[in-house]
């Protein structure tokens, strides 16, 4: 295990990190739309959101990636590897994050919403000042969990031609015949990244106001 091999692993880890962060952010934006649709109470919005969530939660990410990469060109949309990888990860995490958010909104105590109503908050104020902050606070740990899951799931994007950390480790171990140190290093890099995410998230969580029902 030389410095050169370790540097290559670190470069690939940057790829892993970049793809994951972009996907989590895009996924969160889509998740907001999805959970809004689910909470709208109107069948016309709920039905497509449900369909989206059941598909992207129900089909393995590996299959989704292969579909996006090889099926989209059939209808004339040919996306490069990196775009396919980000679309796949974003849509998949959006489905999970939407369910987390919906759970958060459902868990906002009814009494608080009613209290806001009688004290003269209009629906808009109730939503942005009462429901959103509480729901976000309640969903935060689940969102961090999802971010860590996506970072690890990003090891699957090598099937659409992205050389991320896991694929780089495979390539290096097959050319150097040093599987143990290389895979151990790759595992350690994943661990350190996720540990850092958990550490920062823990700090943020402690700084948020406590919610008790």
């Amino acid at each position: 295990m030389t410095i050169k091999l370790f540097t290559l692993l670190m470069q690939a880890a940057l790829y892993t990190l970049g793809i994951s962060i972009v996907s989590i952010v895009i996924g969160f934006a889509i998740a907001i739309l999805l959970s809004a649709a689910m909470l709208s109470g109107k069948g016309i919005y709920i039905a497509p959101a449900r369909l989206f969530i059941s598909f992207f939660r129900g089909v393995p990410l590996l299959v989704q990636l292969l579909l996006i990469y090889t099926l989209l060109p059939v209808i004339g949309i040919n996306v490069p590897s990196i775009v396919a990888a980000i679309i796949g990860l974003s849509l998949c995490t959006a489905a999970y994050q939407a369910e987390n958010l919906r759970g958060g909104f459902d868990a906002v105590p009814k009494g608080l919403v009613e209290a806001a109503d009688v004290t003269g908050f209009n629906p808009r104020q109730t939503f942005f000042r009462i429901r959103v902050p509480i729901a976000l606070r309640l969903t935060f740990p689940a969102l961090v969990n999802e971010a860590i899951m996506i970072l690890k799931s990003s090891s699957l994007v090598s099937v659409v031609g992205i050389i991320e950390l896991t694929k780089m480790a495979q390539d290096l171990s097959s050319s150097t015949y040093l599987p143990i140190p290389i895979f151990a290093s790759a595992g350690a890099i994943y661990l350190v990244i996720n540990w850092a995410i958990a550490l920062v998230a823990g700090r943020v969580e402690r700084s948020l106001p406590k919610v008790t029902a």
Partner: peptide, 17 residues
């Protein structure tokens, strides 16, 4: 170059990758 696992190399050629 586009590097893929062998079992998806030929399908991706047909998909115009």
């Amino acid at each position: 170059w586009v590097a893929l696992p062998w079992d998806s190399v030929l399908p991706s050629l047909e998909a115009g990758k």
